[in-house]
């Protein structure tokens, strides 16, 4: 009961196979009520499959999934009144106009805020009179976004919602989502590849790979797991740096040292530098990108172990 209140989505050990392919292999995902949760992973990692299980479009083969306190398969229809979904690849009925599709989807969800609809149409600069067959990918995505964001729902499930939008519209999207969350009462699950978008919007995030969650936490927590790159100009030679656990790629030449250090050993490394006398120092904070690449490039078997 308390879990249902604190978590909009709670998935444990989710398994889904298509024939011999295991698309989800014991996936865990917890999205707290009221947060924007980033859902990252390379193509084919299982992001869309997870979302489709959460929407009751696919039936899971194992594990548990809770959505807004209910069973996403058995109670799909009731739960769908409380959420809105934007698919990654939006297809629309070619002979309906954009405005018609927005009203239809909104109404099928149980109602649409007309004023919000018009505001969003203006913000996204979308002509609702055009037939869907004449829209570009980006414009089809705008149609789905307007329909979802103008619905008065608790949970937004957005599957790579900006993959067809231009940078200007991406910015509009960010502003709109931020405003939504500030108004309160909304939870967002945002699947994405775009790191800057996730950094800008998300409170917490989960990285998945090969159907499993490999990292989850707040941005700060995840940064903690990465390395800071340091370059320093020193007054004298530095001792013990090479022997310190957590220091990598150490190079020193003419009083210049450069190395990468695990954030757990950062303090010790800095103390050693200070003892040698620091004349200049450049440090590069860890980027999400590094974190991301580390997980993407690593072979699957090692992914869970080498934290």
């Amino acid at each position: 009961m308390s879990d249902a209140l604190t978590h909009a989505i709670h998935v444990e050990g989710l398994v889904k196979s298509f024939g011999r392919t295991r698309a989800l292999d014991g996936l865990d995902l917890a999205v707290r009520t009221g947060e924007v949760h980033g859902f990252l992973g390379p193509n084919g990692a299982g992001k869309t499959t997870t979302i489709r299980v959460l929407l009751g479009l696919l039936r899971s083969d194992g594990g548990t999934a809770q959505l807004l306190g209910g069973d996403p398969w058995a109670q799909a229809t009731e739960l769908h009144k409380r959420l809105a979904y934007v698919p990654g690849d939006v297809t629309l009925w070619p002979n309906l106009s954009g405005g018609e599709v927005i009203d239809l989807l909104g109404d099928l969800r149980g109602g649409l805020n007309k004023q919000r609809r018009d505001e969003l149409l203006t913000a996204f600069d979308l002509d609702p009179r055009k037939k869907a067959r004449t829209y570009s990918k980006g414009n089809r995505q705008k149609v789905a976004l307007v329909a979802a964001l103008a619905s008065d729902v608790e949970l937004l499930i957005l599957d790579e919602p900006t993959s067809g939008l231009d940078p200007l519209m991406e910015e509009v999207f960010r502003e709109v989502v931020r405003a939504e969350v500030q108004r309160g009462g909304r939870t967002v699950l945002l699947s994405s590849h775009i790191l800057s978008e996730v950094e800008a919007l998300c409170d917490r995030l989960t990285i998945i790979r090969d159907g499993r969650a490999v990292e989850t936490g707040t941005l700060a927590e995840l940064r903690h797991l990465t390395r800071t790159t340091i370059r320093a100009e020193l007054a004298g030679p530095v001792d013990g740096l090479a022997g310190l656990a957590g220091v990598h790629d150490l190079r020193s030449q003419d009083g210049q040292v450069s190395f990468a250090v695990d954030n757990t050993s950062l303090e010790q490394a800095l103390r050693l530098l200070a003892e040698a006398g620091v004349r200049g120092l450049v440090s590069q904070p860890p980027t999400l990108e590094e974190l991301f690449l580390r997980h993407y490039n690593r072979p699957a078997a090692a992914a869970g172990v080498t934290r």
Partner: peptide
């Protein structure tokens, strides 16, 4: 060529059966 459509849906479209009829 394709023509412009209505900017908003008519009441009659707003149900699964309304959509099916339209299609």
């Amino acid at each position: 060529p394709a023509r412009l459509g209505p900017p908003a849906a008519a009441r009659s479209l707003l149900s699964p059966t309304g959509l099916a009829w339209r299609l």
